[in-house]
């Protein structure tokens, strides 16, 4: 017999899904910007490396969103790393 799925459970899954898709994309975008500005190489090269890294970060974030114990923790991790990356990108400004 199928276990009854509670509303709390369903909301948790929905929340993690949004965290993985929207949060994961935002995190990857922020990491891309941070790497593109922080890497000590020509800016075209830095942008290229950053783009490849971002594509590795996004699936990792999605896995994270479903691996941790609760939806709240999933969000917390993604928002923390994305915030840090965005702050680095903002502080550095465009690559000279």
């Amino acid at each position: 017999m199928k276990p009854r799925l509670t509303l709390r459970y369903r909301l948790g899954v929905a929340s993690r899904t949004v965290a993985a898709a929207v949060g994961g994309y935002a995190l990857a975008a922020a990491v891309a910007m941070a790497f593109a500005r922080a890497l000590p190489m020509a800016r075209a090269e830095a942008s290229t490396v950053a783009t490849i890294v971002a594509l590795l970060v996004m699936p990792a974030a999605a896995i994270w969103a479903f691996a941790v114990g609760s939806a709240a923790r999933a969000w917390a991790g993604i928002v923390a790393v994305a915030g840090l990356a965005a702050a680095i990108a903002w502080a550095l400004g465009p690559h000279p």
């Binding site: 990857a28 975008a29 922020a30 891309a32 910007m33 941070a34 790497f35 593109a36 500005r37 800016r43 075209a44 830095a46 942008s47 290229t48 490396v49 950053a50 783009t51 490849i52 971002a54 594509l55 996004m58 990108a89 465009p94 690559h95």
Partner: peptide, 16 residues
């Protein structure tokens, strides 16, 4: 990756 300039342009936008 082949479509990345369309879907994840942020590494480029950050510098250009």
């Amino acid at each position: 990756l082949t479509l990345v300039t369309l879907t994840m342009p942020w590494g480029l936008v950050a510098n250009y």
